[in-house]
């Protein structure tokens, strides 16, 4: 089983996780920019973080045969802090980089005017850079937040086929299915979705425009949840082709719209670089 995890925060994971992910079939990931648990208070913290997503993290992934791309953005939560919002002025130069395949995560956290301004500004940046968009839906007031997110995307003139709306569940999947946007599901040990419920949604809505991710981060999460969904699909009677569509072809098709997806050998460029992270 080959797996493309379209939303995973590898910054928060250990190198052992890359090994386990490769063993489970993960060959490509997209890491969207998010908040780090501890709020940031200045632009420099964002720039170093973006640089890590463009430098250290793809290098680390490549040691384990995993291609790493990223989505960059000011996340909704930190858009509320004026000291952080100024990073929007720095973002355009980052969106030019080869391994940036989307703008994200953008959207709402508390549905404030500040979040909406950052959301709209970044939708415009995505259009200017011909990049698709990864939209985070809020934990609180999820249905209203998801509906409003779809309205903002539509008002911005963004074609629905270039938008992935993430962290969906039973109450929100229908809205997004009707919108024409791609549908993302985060499979967690306790919160959001679990593999059994995910399979039920796939049975009801089909496998088109459906993406499954582990969203593994610094919280209680598991980077192998994508594989669990693949196994659960097979156990529930889905065919290999349908598993491959959800876990590989759909994310490739979505992020491939950037024209920057490179699913080559997974080598870091030096065949003598060894297969471990050295502490020089």
């Amino acid at each position: 089983m080959r797996i493309f995890d379209p939303h995973i925060h590898m910054t928060s994971r250990t190198t052992d996780d890359y090994q386990r992910m490769h063993d489970a079939g993960v060959r490509a990931v997209v890491e969207p920019a998010f908040w780090l648990g501890q709020p940031r208070t200045n632009i420099g913290s964002f720039l170093d973080y973006f640089d890590a997503l463009l430098g250290w993290e793809p290098y680390r992934a490549a040691q384990y045969g995993i291609r790493h791309h990223c989505a960059l953005a000011l996340n909704p939560k930190e858009a509320n802090d004026r000291r952080c919002a100024e990073v929007l002025a720095e973002l355009p130069r980052y969106l030019l980089k080869d391994s940036v395949v989307a703008v994200g995560e953008v959207g709402y956290d508390s549905m404030t005017p500040e979040e909406e301004r950052a959301f709209e500004a970044q939708l415009a940046m995505a259009a200017e850079n011909d990049l698709p968009v990864l939209v985070h839906t809020p934990h609180r007031d999820k249905v209203a937040g998801s509906r409003r997110s779809l309205d903002v995307v539509k008002a911005a003139g963004m074609p629905p086929g270039r938008v992935l709306v993430d962290h969906l569940n039973e109450p929100t999947v229908g809205l997004v299915a009707d919108s024409g946007c791609w549908m993302g599901f985060s499979i967690y040990p306790d919160t959001k979705m679990d593999p059994g419920r995910m399979v039920a949604i796939l049975k009801e809505y089909g496998t088109a425009r459906m993406l499954v991710n582990s969203a593994a981060d610094w919280g209680r999460s598991d980077p192998l949840k994508t594989r669990e969904v693949g196994d659960a699909m097979l156990a529930a009677g889905f065919g290999q082709d349908e598993v491959d569509q959800v876990l590989w072809h759909n994310p490739v098709a979505f992020y491939g719209q950037s024209g920057r997806l490179d699913l080559g050998t997974g080598s870091a460029g030096l065949d003598y670089a060894g297969n471990t992270i050295r502490r020089g």
């Binding site: 430098g55 250290w56 290098y59 870091a268 460029g269 030096l270 003598y272 670089a273 060894g274 992270i277 050295r278 502490r279 020089g280």
Partner: peptide
């Protein structure tokens, strides 16, 4: 100062 073999080389 990096830990990337390509840059160090």
């Amino acid at each position: 100062r990096t830990n990337d073999a390509r840059l160090v080389a």
